[in-house]
Lab assay of single mutants.
Amino acid sequence: PKDEAKKKVKEAIKRGDEETAKRIAKKYNLDWDDAKREADEER
């Protein structure tokens, strides 16, 4: 599900692992900028 994928993307971003985050986002066709902004807001 997309929500689960987005959570994984945000967790990867918070760990500083943007490569993984981008790969997950691409795989699930998520909006990378959107997920990154959300992760930054939660930090």
Rank of each mutant, 00 (worst) to 15 (best):
D17K: 02
V9G: 01
L30G: 00
N29V: 02
N29F: 06
K26Q: 14
K6F: 15
D17N: 04
K36C: 07
R23A: 15
N29P: 02
K2E: 13
R15E: 05
K36R: 09
K36Y: 10
R15K: 09
K36N: 06
A35H: 04
E42Y: 06
R37Q: 08
G16R: 03
K8L: 15
K27D: 12
K14D: 08
E19L: 09
I13S: 01
A39P: 04
A5Y: 11
D34H: 06
I24E: 02
I13Y: 09
A25K: 01
D31Y: 03
E38A: 07
I13M: 06
K27R: 10
E19G: 06
D3C: 10
D34C: 07
E42K: 06
A35D: 03
D33W: 09
K27F: 14
K26D: 12
D33L: 12
E19H: 07
A5G: 08
A39E: 05
R15V: 05
D17W: 07
K8W: 15
K27N: 07
R43W: 12
D17L: 04
D3T: 12
K10L: 15
D34S: 10
D34G: 07
E19F: 06
K26G: 07
E41Y: 11
E11P: 00
K26E: 14
G16V: 01
A12P: 00
D31V: 06
W32A: 01
E11I: 04
R43K: 13
K7D: 08
N29K: 08
R37F: 07
Y28R: 00
K10Y: 13
N29E: 09
R23N: 11
K22P: 00
K36T: 07
A35T: 11
P1H: 13
P1C: 12
A35W: 05
D34V: 13
R15G: 04
W32Q: 01
K8T: 07
R15W: 06
K14L: 15
K22T: 02
K22V: 04
A5F: 09
P1K: 14
K8C: 12
G16D: 03
K14I: 13
A21Y: 01
K6N: 06
K7Q: 13
G16H: 04
K27M: 14
